[in-house]
Amino acid sequence: MARKAAAKPAQSNVPEFTKEQELEAFREMLLIRRFEEKAGQMYGMGLIGGFCHLYIGQEAVVTGITMASKKGEDAQITGYRDHGHMLVMGLDPKGVMAELTGRRGGLSKGKGGSMHMFSNEHRFYGGNGIVGAQVSLGTGLAFASKYRGDNTVSISYFGDGASNQGQVYESFNMAKLWNLPAVYIIENNRYGMGTSVERASGQPNLSRRGEGFDIPGEQVDGMDVRLVHDAAKRAIEHARSGKGPYILEMLTYRYRGHSMSDPAKYRSKDEVATMRAERDPIEQVKNRILEKRYGTEESLKEIENEIRAIVTEAADFATSDPEPDASELYTDIYAA
């Protein structure tokens, strides 16, 4: 399979992280991992309803990109697999978890759910449930950046599945036509629900999807946070300097099913096990931290415990916070 070669491109000059960067990446990715595991467990207990798409396995993508962006200034938008994005962007884990359980303290007051959370303050624009729609919306965020001349960029994440939607290409065209500061991140986790990239895409190298619009693209090992970060710096700088849009195809992998109710029969257990054993983004960082003596087993354990406490606090809040008041049914429909 071509993917195997592509999933681990030969990387000679891997840009090294500083100690601070390694520890930041470890902490952010572990928070996503533990948060999502807890969300999965709570889904299993019936505390979370509907759809719940976990980000486990893909943590390096949003972590590396956000580390390369201006947090709180650059806009980010994604599809429905959005919990990790919010955690890395600094949204309150309690608010995210309480939204998953549909409680009044959720980021959307319990009215949005897993796929619909937003923050003007952090410049996170969802959390969008319609596959591909976030690409046009994210291009609109880039349009606003350019219109205002505020030197920010817009980062739009979408999956390999979404990369076949028509509006993605309508957006690519206008982004290039108007040279908008748009960075497109294709999170290629190999499967659009249960359909592999090979069974869905005429050109499975998705980094080339911008060629017809003269948009540069790169394929990146999305399991190595250093490579993600390095590519993101290039892409963001390109967009910020007025050169227009840039595409990064992140070769990543989701360990869990498409959503919680996905039996994942379309891939082998070996495939999943191999990725987890050999390519896990968090283990990679952890091993480097230990090798380079940026930390010890004990100091990392301490970080683990801190994160566990954050997740426990979020879960406790999300189970004890009351449901929204019935009067909320008719609020927030029309803007004042």
Binding site: A133, V135, S136, T139, G140, F143, S154, Q167, E170, M174
Partner: peptide, 10 residues
């Protein structure tokens, strides 16, 4: 489809 989405994003 594309420009409606871009306008909503803006």
């Amino acid at each position: 489809h594309g420009f409606a989405g871009i306008a909503v994003g803006a």
